[in-house]
């Protein structure tokens, strides 16, 4: 029996390695799931003098999309976000660390999928949301609770798989 121990240990290890092949070590879960979205008040881009804070979106299910003009994947997801906005999804943007001040021009040129997009110049609010890079998208419910975080660009497949079922469920609870 003793002699079989190494083989058994290896079998267990191999099992874990197999499962590990289908996991992504770079995808870090957010500690905010099920918790209220961090509070912030930030200026709205393109509307000098106005600010936005999450309370203003209370009562509906909304997406907070962290993006930046310098981010390539954000450009990739932009057309799909436009499509979502047209179908009535509420998307708010957080323009993260836009040191070159390009966001406004870019949105004017390409169109904005956002109800408003706020300006997080020094990246502090991004850090409060535990952002590590762009794009990242949070799903926030009617009560202001974060329900999901998606890292990376959103496309049709991701939307169908991760967002739609959750949004359907959240809409029903109202």
């Amino acid at each position: 029996m003793k002699r079989w121990i190494p083989l058994i240990l290896f079998a267990v290890l191999a099992g874990f390695l197999y499962v590990g092949l289908y996991l992504n070590p770079r995808e870090v879960p957010s500690p905010f799931i099920g918790k209220p979205a961090p509070k912030f008040v930030l200026p709205v881009i393109g509307q000098p003098g106005t600010t936005f804070s999450p309370e203003q979106a209370k009562g509906k299910v909304w997406l907070l999309n962290i993006w930046a003009p310098w981010c390539v994947s954000c450009r990739a997801e932009h057309p799909f976000l436009m499509q979502l906005a047209q179908s009535g999804i509420s998307i708010y943007g957080l323009n993260w660390k836009d040191k070159d001040r390009e966001a406004e021009a870019l949105l004017n040129q390409k169109g904005s999928p956002y109800i408003v997009t706020v300006d997080d110049l020094d990246g502090r609010v991004g850090i409060d949301f535990g952002v590590t890079g762009t794009p990242e998208t949070f799903v926030i419910d009617q009560a202001g609770i974060i329900r999901m975080k998606h890292i990376g660009p959103i496309d049709e497949a991701v939307w169908k798989k991760k967002f739609e079922p959750l949004l359907d469920k959240l809409e029903k609870t109202t």
């Binding site: 870090v28 879960p29 957010s30 500690p31 850090i127 409060d128 949301f129 535990g130 590590t132």
Partner: peptide, 8 residues
Amino acid sequence: LTDRYGDF
């Protein structure tokens, strides 16, 4: 930091 980024 852990509040924002977890134990990771």
